[in-house]
Design a protein around this nucleic acid. Structure first.
Length: 754
DNA sequence: TAGCGACTGGTTTTT
DNA sequence: CCAGTCGCTA
């Protein structure tokens, strides 16, 4: 607990201004490492301690639940006891809770379920089939993504249908969208996008409800504003309308979620939307060495669409960015892990200080293997997500059905887990009959059971053996659903595991039963956290948590473990030592992003985000050969264009993992060595590189023309020295990356990667 | 109905 | 390489 005045101490003028500006619209442009988190928490603390605002009146939107939790913790330390009344969370969790309270205005039952990605895909597939469309011709994922895009700009299926005129795919999507809306309604379910869409709808159609929240939340803050979508912006605008104490924080250069419908124009146009807005730029970086920051700035300056942000640092120069070119993906991973070992032995960094960042999750495999073989403890963020694991999805599907028996999607998932004699045909039969009666599938099964009980003929066309199985299943679910209103949540989970046969099914399965059971027990431990709630609430809380947690939310810094994480997930984190692997064309930038310059710019921002996570050391790696699916390669990998865009003077080539004593031989485990990589590097740089000799005239994109004065093969590349004319002087350059062009002779070949 | 083997097609990033 | 799907058999 501090006194108000102390909150402003230790802040630079811009930070201080941002903290003290509490009234009216405010845009804080916060470059990487500029103390954003500190500013946000201090600003809230200042509101409370300096301006007498109650935490209850403040709403803070964060990008992850973890960020919200941390904000709460920090605030607690600053203002003491009364911080818990603060509302902080992601848009999705805020909206989920709001709809739980207020959804009835929209006819939404209190026990609605939240569909995750897998549920959505399953539902869309169902709708495609219902609509008579071939799921091969219309991939469910593609249709879903189109629908999701419409939802995130607040379009319903009617609007989409109107706008689809003439475009067949659009028309099909609109039609499926319609069916999907109906399905969600029947199942009492909302998908991720609905949480936002329906909240916006609620606010629009029920001004009185909106009014209450406008009154309550006098002060509104939105973090990571560059990654909000239209729906999120609209919701915050509506909430802020009365007081207009609306503070948004973000950085256009770190906008990396446009594929998820985030719209960077939200931040770019904020000043236009709010002409009276103050704009404060936090320009000083406190995180990274000057070299790392300059390298990142050099890279991002290649983007055409951006606002200059004037980011600077007073930090020490630090070491050059280390560039390592590996021969294979495995050697790349091996080098990273060996270097982490060396940093631990010789430089006092712990593995916990280090993170390896990559573009796609699949890249984690080689890294994990290297960690295993070299005995480095690691922590994988993401990957096959815990909640996506089959056994967990099955268990939660049961719980969801207990919570909400309208949910046909969950029912369909678990009806044959374990197999209980109700096959695909019977399920279809029940589904059709239930639909014709306008009831849910479970209600249908219940009626089948009731008819059997009272000796009536079975209302649906089912074999008698199936009828018995259906009755048994309905009985179990009914019993458990009744119990869910009475017993505490862990008890419910235990009963469910037994009575459904799920425990037996998992433990006797031949696919890693122990591991899967461990996962179930981990989920049970999570359920423990909700045990104190009065019965139905514990289940509600557990399900909401299951649906809305992100991977980063689960991530906890572990002292001694290396972090393996995607570039996307690394946003907002920082590490003393950062490795970015896979700097190759087609991977970073990703091949799926190569068809438009806009997408490439987003990839560049992604790389920028990765680089700016580093505090002291930054390593960039690439491999010449990267395994494709079946072990074949897709030819030699071309160096990422981003490597060329980083100012050459800030980069040095590195032979990783070799200590002062040179004890650890860098070896890719297949007999290949760094030496081989060096030869490969020269080869990859093109035939002209081998022909380049001392005395040749070359042109460099930035330094101009010069003469090669030295040619030194190093561990993984060739370092050349060029004496440039025009007062530039001598520069040492890496052959494979320096944007060099040989002037005379036959070569039209640029010597850098393409 | 369930389980198995063969086959296909498809792969970014995630609240 | 992997997951999802298809068709066959018990």
């Amino acid at each position: 607990m501090v006194v108000a005045a102390e909150l402003l101490g230790g802040l630079n003028p811009a930070q201080r201004e941002a903290v003290e500006t509490v009234e009216g619209p405010l845009l804080i442009v916060a470059g990487p490492g500029s103390g954003k988190t500190r500013v946000i928490t201090h600003r809230i603390a200042w509101l409370v301690l300096g301006c007498g605002v109650r935490p209850y009146d403040i709403l803070a939107m964060t990008f992850t639940n973890k960020a919200a939790r941390e904000m709460g913790d920090r605030l607690g330390r600053l203002v003491g006891g009364h911080s818990d009344a603060l509302t902080a969370g992601t848009f999705h969790s805020f909206c989920a809770r709001l709809l739980r309270r207020e959804g009835e205005h929209l006819g939404l039952p209190r026990n609605y379920l939240i569909y995750d990605d897998a549920d959505q895909t399953a539902a869309i597939k169902q709708c495609l089939e219902d609509g008579g469309y071939d799921p091969r011709r219309f991939p469910p994922r593609a249709v879903l993504s189109r629908i999701s895009r419409a939802k995130s700009v607040l379009q319903d299926s009617r609007v989409m249908a109107q706008q689809a005129q003439g475009d067949y795919f659009e028309e099909v999507c609109a039609r499926v969208y319609r069916l999907y809306e109906e399905l969600l309604g029947r199942n009492s379910a909302l998908d991720f996008d609905d949480l936002l869409l329906r909240t916006a709808q609620l606010f629009r159609e029920f001004p009185a409800v909106l009014g209450r929240y406008q009154q309550r939340y006098n002060y509104l803050m939105v973090d990571e504003f560059q990654d909000t979508n239209i729906a999120q912006y609209r919701i915050s605008q509506m909430l802020a309308r009365t007081h207009e104490n609306f503070c948004v924080v973000g950085d256009p250069d770190q906008s990396i979620y446009s594929w998820r419908s985030a719209d960077v124009r939200n931040i770019l146009n904020f000043k236009t939307d709010y002409p009276g807005a103050r704009v404060i730029a936090l320009g000083q970086n406190y995180r990274s060495t000057a070299t790392i920051l300059n390298a990142a700035q050099g890279l991002i300056s290649s983007n055409g669409q951006r606002l200059e942000n004037g980011l600077f640092t007073e930090n020490a120069t630090g070491l050059p960015v280390q560039l390592h070119e590996a021969y294979t993906e495995d050697e790349e991973a091996g080098s990273v892990i060996a270097e982490i070992g060396r940093l631990a032995r010789e430089e006092g960094f712990k593995p916990g200080d280090c993170a390896v960042l990559y573009r796609v999750n699949a890249q984690s495999r080689a890294l994990e293997e290297a960690c295993l073989s070299q005995g480095v403890k690691y922590r994988l963020v993401g990957g096959t997500r815990f909640y996506q694991r089959r056994e967990i999805k099955d268990l939660t599907a049961y719980l969801r059905l207990l919570y909400n028996q309208q949910d046909d999607v969950s029912l369909s998932r678990i009806i044959s887990v374990p197999p209980r004699g109700i096959g695909v045909k019977s399920i279809q039969q029940i589904g059709q009959w239930a639909a014709s009666q306008g009831i849910s599938m479970f209600e249908g099964m219940r009626r089948v059971a009731a008819a059997r009980e009272s000796g009536m003929p079975c209302p649906a066309r089912l074999a008698s053996r199936t009828v018995a199985a259906v009755a048994r299943f309905a009985g179990v679910i009914d019993r458990l659903a009744a119990l869910s209103q009475e017993v505490e949540i862990v008890k419910l989970v235990d009963l469910l595991l037994e009575e459904s046969g799920l425990r037996k099914h998992i433990q006797e399965s031949d696919d890693r039963p122990e591991e899967r059971w461990e996962n179930v027990l981990a989920y049970r431990a999570l359920a423990q956290e909700f045990n104190a709630e009065t019965p139905p609430d514990g289940l509600a809380g557990l399900l909401e948590r299951t649906a809305l947690v992100s991977q980063v939310d689960e991530y906890e810094e572990a002292e001694d473990s290396l972090t393996l994480i995607t570039l996307h997930q690394a946003k907002g984190l920082e590490f003393p030592v950062v490795f970015i692997v896979g700097l190759e064309e087609g991977l970073l930038p990703h091949s799926r992003s190569l068809d438009s310059e806009e997408q490439v710019e987003e990839e560049r921002r992604l790389c920028y985000v990765g680089m700016t996570r580093a505090q002291q050391r930054l390593y960039l790696l690439r491999a010449f050969r990267r395994g494709f699916r079946n072990g074949t390669t897709s030819g030699p990998a071309v160096a990422s264009r981003f490597l060329r865009e980083i100012p050459g003077g800030l980069v040095a080539s590195a032979a990783l993992g070799r200590g002062r004593a040179g004890a650890v031989a860098a070896d890719d485990g297949r007999g290949g060595s760094i030496r081989a990589a060096a030869l490969a590097a020269a080869a990859a740089a093109g035939p002209a590189a081998e022909r380049l000799r001392v005395g040749d005239a070359v042109r460099h994109r930035a330094f101009g023309e010069g003469i090669v004065t030295a040619y030194d093969p190093t561990a993984s590349d060739v370092e050349i020295t060029v004496e440039f004319s025009g007062g530039v002087g001598a520069k040492r350059l890496l052959l494979s990356y320096a944007p060099l062009e040989r002037l005379e002779g036959s070569g039209d070949s640029g010597l850098g990667g393409r």
